[in-house]
Amino acid sequence: MVDLQMGPPIHRLHERLLAYPESPAPRGQDLLALVYDLAHRIDPGVTAEVLEPLARLPQCQLEPDEPEISAHPDVFMLMIWLLADEAFSEPTLSAIDLVSLLLSADNLMATGYPNLQDEDQREELIRLALNGLRLKPRDETDHQARDRLLMVSSSERARVVTASRAAEERAEAIRQALAEQRAREAADKYTRE
C-alpha cells in the first residue's frame, strides 16, 4: 500500500468548507479554466493529455444560460473549493490523482449535494479528497487516516475508491510499460502493416 503524505490539519479544511462562497459557481468553460488552474497549481508538470478527460465532464460542458439543477454546490464544486486552499501547495501532488478524484467526485458520496452544516458529511468529503490525493490529515498516521476514512465512508464507497485507484494504477503501469517498450524495438514480424 502506498505511503500517505502529510496534508493540512483537518480542522482547517472544515473551516474552508464552511466558508464556501454564496456567489454563483462558475460553469462550462469558466469552470474548466478554474480546474486547469487548480491542476497546474497542484502539479506544475501536468500535461494536456492528463487534463483532457475533464473537458468531457457534464459540468464543464454546460452553457452559461442553462438553469442550475440544485441551489446547493455538488461534491465536484466542493472538492475544487477545498483543494484550492493554499495548504495544498505544500505537499508534492500528482495531477493524475487530482483528475482521477474529480472524475469520480459525483459517485464518491451517497449524496450528490452534501449539507455543509453536517459535520459528518464535511468530514467524509475532506477525507475522500485527501485519500484521493494520497494525503492524510496532519498529525495522523497512515493507519489512522485510512481507518477514519473507512469509518466515515460506507464500506462500499471505500471499495469504489480503492478499486478505482487500483484500476488507475494498473492502467498507469500498462501505459508506462508500453512507453518503455516504444523506446525499444519490438519483436520480429515479417510483414509491415
Binding site: R170, A173, I174, A177, L178, Q181, R182, A186, A187, K189
Partner: peptide
C-alpha cells in the same frame, strides 16, 4: 502482466 508487454507503433 504489464512486464511482459511489447509494443508496436502504428
Amino acid at each position: 502482466d504489464p512486464g511482459q508487454l511489447i509494443a508496436f507503433e502504428t
